[in-house]
Amino acid sequence: MATVSATLANNVTVQPVSGTSSTGLGSSFNVGSLAPVEDQPQSSPGVPGLGLTVDIQVENTKGTANTLTATVEDTSGSGAFSGQGTITWGDGDSGIAWIEFTGFPVQGDGVTPTDRCKLTLQTSGDDVSVRWFTI
């Protein structure tokens, strides 16, 4: 079974979860040590008053020891938040694990919820299958 841990949390909550409450299809791709992924999740349009939540589902199908590092950062350049979490599988371990980033601070005006972030994903070994969702 994979281990999920928060390794950095600056004005954002990083935590393991068991799934997502998103109603969307999410974005899916493979991530590896030689194929890191960088993206910019945005909160669901038309949902006023809600801030950003990013749920990431990762599947290690090969059963090899591996670590996925997921990092979120402020896109405004002000450094208002950053967060990092890891999902670690031991040798012979496979399966699905989830990590969530939530509790983003409001934007610089003190009122507007954060609606986007920079997301970077990379593994220490073999490719894994990733799907991320926003709420």
Rank of each mutant, 00 (worst) to 15 (best):
S94V: 02
D74Y: 04
D93A: 12
N10E: 07
V47T: 12
T114A: 04
G24C: 01
S76M: 06
S21G: 13
P45G: 05
V111C: 02
P45F: 10
T114E: 06
V106R: 02
V17A: 13
T71Y: 13
G63A: 11
M1D: 07
L68V: 11
A65M: 05
E73K: 12
V54K: 00
T23A: 06
G32Q: 06
C117E: 07
L50N: 07
V72Y: 01
P41T: 01
G110Y: 11
V14W: 08
D55P: 12
D93R: 00
Q122N: 09
Q57E: 11
P36E: 03
T23V: 13
G103A: 11
S33W: 09
T88M: 02
L119S: 10
S124P: 03
T123Y: 08
E100P: 10
L119V: 04
V4K: 00
G63S: 09
F81C: 03
S28A: 14
S94R: 03
N30M: 14
I135G: 09
P105S: 05
W132A: 01
V58H: 00
F133A: 02
A6H: 07
T53N: 10
T134G: 01
S78G: 12
I56W: 07
P45C: 05
G125I: 07
W89I: 04
V106I: 09
F29A: 07
G51L: 01
A97G: 06
D109L: 03
F101T: 01
A65T: 13
